[in-house]
Design a protein around this nucleic acid. Structure first.
Length: 784
DNA sequence: CAGTGAGCGAGCTTCCGCTTGACTT
């Protein structure tokens, strides 16, 4: 046992630091928080000044036990958790649990895992900062109160299924998506006409090249555009003025969690959870620094390392030292930016993480590289018959600088002309006459703000100071798991647009088609998400306010700096909040999310879209009517808010009988698990692209035959009487009895077809006698 | 696995932020 025990949060970090500190130090990890509020009675004694009751969660017992033992056998314990609010609290909890005195135990901090930083830290120990700890306790308790008082309100007041949830972070995330969707639904697109003229001129080599110039402004109507073209008939064009301006581009800061998620989404198409999973792998294998960070800072040693790599690869000219400042006020900067551990490693072998690593490597190096230098040329072109002018602009890259490696992506889609790369212009002279090849006025439509992607939502949350690097990915998973939000694609619709062309002094009009509104992997609110958001907005306006988190963060800061007492802050929040909760429980109506669609022509009964126990549906007639109402489920992409009466009536066409296959009826319907076909008493899920409303027998019949064959293939053996199946799955052969699966012992994996009934029964008995340990997530009994 | 949709009441759910594995059909 070494003389010193150093406790950090992450095990990968522990390994590195142990190497740096040498033999006198044992470095161990506590794996994050080791205590949390008890769940009973919220774990808070509200009437006793919000006194928290902490427990050690089951999955932390083991590590706490080990740390206790080590702490007892060592001379000195050093608390080296992260230098932020949560880290400070973890240190305090460690004191409490390990029996250390917070007023004498050594607390050390460092922002980077480098030898000088750690050695410096060890020489300057301090004590646990109780003000900061109290700020964390206030944060924790407030989140618990909000979550555990709001969620039960939803259970009581929503007429849909249970296990709904609300919280300071997730509810605002859903609100953002709901409001964006409504903005899009309400958006009225207007069209304008954009004029582009194509000229030819001789370049330096005497070669004839074509370039583009833009019209003076966008025209509101086809008539106005035509009038302009008309005025250009017979005109001569000449260069009136040329401006040449140098410009520069600057590299983006190195990655934080949020910007890494954004770029991996834009450039590699990764979901935020995939990005984090791969980054974790890179971190654990020592390839990159810590991946949950809000800091853009690079350590001194990293800067030196990067400089060397840049100079070696690209030369002195390409290096430029830069320090980046964080724009985000809520940043706590306990770590460095995300960077490669060794700048010399351009890539990694592992094919899974290769792309992400290279992205990080390029971004980090680029951040220490020289500006790109450009030359922007703008030529004004006069029209002899018209006082208006055309503008041609071109850009030439004089020095690539950081662009050699990396250019940050953008969120706006490149559907329109706006983002067209500016090409280069031929060398023009003032007064030079230009030949017009043609001039076009093209109709363009304004577009609503795009729906959020996972990554652009993270960006927005970070801007609002809501959530932390460690929670962005889990929050996005939660709102999807709760059924408030769905990630999906949307097909575009065809739209016709007009083009007026002036060519050889003649104006012609044509039409063309474009695809618009197509979106990939975007976040859509569900009806449930909208209804819950409306409800929370109505009754808990203050918590749903986009500035709520920023405001209370300010108060946490005051607690951290000793200007405010944490219990008082909580009291000021709790009293009005709890009153709202009680008022809502007492007075709010149960929410059904009902919307009137019209009247059924055949029966005169009212038709409504509303939320049922099993999701959004259409109802014809009322429950109290003599004749029972008719019900139909909405399609997955439909929404209560936007469905039309005609679309609603369409839904009543199911179930459909498609005709006969092998002398049996084939019917299609939509069930609990999506669209399916039924044939010979068996069920077959329809393929994604098959629409149960339009699918035909000749599409479904092969599916039935194919699925039957696939099932035969998976089946190795069946013991009919005992109802034991031996099946082949993606993890190898296994046993299936009813809904339960059983693993085969290793020695049976080779020849599963030789298994006997007795052997199978023995395996099952064995498994039942030694049930697999279910630890962290307790299995839910009911689906959903 | 694939019929539902009212209302009652039992017994359940739930938060955010710090960290990794265990597990999967």
């Amino acid at each position: 046992m070494a003389k010193n025990l150093v406790i950090v949060e992450s095990p990968a970090k522990a390994k590195t630091i142990e190497k740096i500190l040498g033999n006198d130090y044992d470095v161990r990890s506590c794996f994050g928080h080791i205590r949390d509020l008890e769940k009973d009675a919220m774990g808070i004694d509200i009437n006793n000044n919000f006194k928290p009751k902490y427990i050690i969660p089951d999955d932390k017992e083991k590590v706490v036990k080990e740390l206790r033992k080590m702490a007892k056998d060592t001379d000195e314990v050093w608390l080296a958790t992260d230098e932020d609010r949560e880290g400070e609290a973890i240190s305090w909890h460690l004191c409490e649990v390990l029996g250390l005195d917070p007023y004498s135990t050594k607390r050390i901090v460092f922002h980077e895992i480098t030898k000088p930083a750690i050695e410096r830290a060890v020489q300057q120990p301090r004590l646990v900062n109780m003000d900061l700890v109290n700020a964390q306790q206030a944060r924790r308790i407030l989140d618990r109160i909000v979550g555990f008082e709001l969620s039960p309100v939803l259970w009581r007041k929503m007429s849909m299924r249970n296990s709904l949830s609300a919280g300071r972070v997730q509810s605002v995330a859903v609100r953002l998506i709901v409001e964006r969707e409504r903005e899009i639904n309400a958006f009225k697109s207007v069209s304008t006409f954009k004029v582009e003229a194509y000229f030819t001129a001789k370049d330096i080599n005497g070669k004839s090249v074509t370039f583009k110039a833009e019209g003076p402004s966008r025209f509101k109507s086809a008539e106005d555009a035509e009038k302009f073209l008309q005025q250009c008939v017979g005109a001569a064009y000449s260069v009136r003025d040329i401006q040449v301006k140098p410009s520069r581009k600057t590299p983006a800061a190195p990655f934080t969690t949020s910007t890494l998620q954004q770029e991996a989404s834009r450039k590699l198409g990764y979901s935020v959870s995939k990005t984090m999973l791969l980054a974790q792998k890179l971190y654990e294998s020592g390839q990159i620094t810590y991946m949950r960070t809000d800091s853009v800072n690079l350590s001194e040693t990293a800067m030196t390392d990067l400089k060397a790599a840049i100079i070696k690869n690209y030369g002195e000219k390409y290096h430029q030292e830069r320090k980046f400042k964080n724009k985000n006020e809520s940043a706590q900067e306990a770590h460095e930016a995300i960077r490669p551990t060794y700048a010399a490693n351009q890539t990694v072998e592992d094919s899974d993480t290769k792309k992400l690593y290279e992205l990080i490597w390029k971004r980090t190096l680029a951040s220490q590289m020289a500006d790109a230098e450009l030359e922007k040329t703008t030529a004004k072109i006069a029209i002899s018959t018209n006082p208006e002018e055309l503008t041609a602009s071109g850009e030439v890259l004089k020095f690539d600088g950081f662009l050699k490696l990396y250019l940050e992506g953008r969120d706006d889609e490149d559907e329109t002309d706006e983002e067209e790369q500016e090409g280069s212009l031929p060398l023009l002279a003032v007064k030079q006459q230009l030949d017009l090849r043609e001039m076009r006025a093209t109709e363009r439509f304004s577009r609503p703000a795009p729906r959020y992607t996972e990554a652009s939502l993270v960006k927005k949350l970070e801007e609002l100071g809501i959530g932390r690097p460690s929670t962005y990915a889990p929050t996005i998973t939660t709102v999807q798991k709760r059924g408030y939000v769905e990630k999906r694609d949307k097909e575009g619709v065809k739209r016709t647009f007009r083009i007026l062309t002036l060519k050889k002094d003649k104006i012609t009009q044509a039409e063309d088609q474009e695809n618009t509104g197509a979106e990939k992997a975007k976040l859509f609110p569900t009806d449930l998400g909208m209804i819950v958001t409306d409800f929370l907005n109505q009754y808990f306006n203050s918590v749903m306010d986009y500035n709520f988190t920023a405001r209370i963060e300010g108060e946490f800061d005051e607690i951290a700096s000793g200007k405010k007492v944490w219990n008082n802050m909580l009291k000021d929040f709790y009293n009005p909040f709890h009153k709202d909760v009680e008022n809502t429980l007492e007075n709010a109506e149960r929410v059904k999310g009902e919307r009137q669609l019209g009247v059924d022509e055949a029966t005169g009964k009212p038709i409504v879209a509303r939320m049922g126990r099993y999701g959004p549906m259409i109802q014809i007639g009322k429950v109290e009517d003599e004749e029972k109402p008719r019900f139909a489920k909405l399609k997955p992409t439909q929404s209560i808010e936007t469905i039309t009466l005609d679309e609603a009536m369409e839904l009543f066409r199911l179930p459909r009988n498609l005709g006969q296959f092998e002398d049996q009826d084939v019917t299609v319907n939509i069930g609990r698990f999506g669209p399916y076909a039924q044939h010979d008493k068996k069920f077959y899920s329809l393929k994604k692209e098959m629409d149960p409303y339009t699918v035909e027998l000749d599409e479904v019949a092969p599916l039935i035959a194919e699925k039957r064959a696939a099932k035969d293939e998976r089946t190795i053996k069946i013991f009919e009487k005992e109802k034991i199946q031996v099946l082949r799955g993606p993890y190898g052969p296994y046993l299936k009895v009813g809904l339960k699966n059983y693993k085969l012992p290793k020695e049976k994996l080779e020849h599963p077809e030789q298994l006997t009934v007795e052997e199978c029964k023995a395996i099952i008995e064995e498994a039942k006698a030694n049930p697999p340990k279910k630890k962290a997530p307790p299995r839910k009994k009911k689906a959903e």
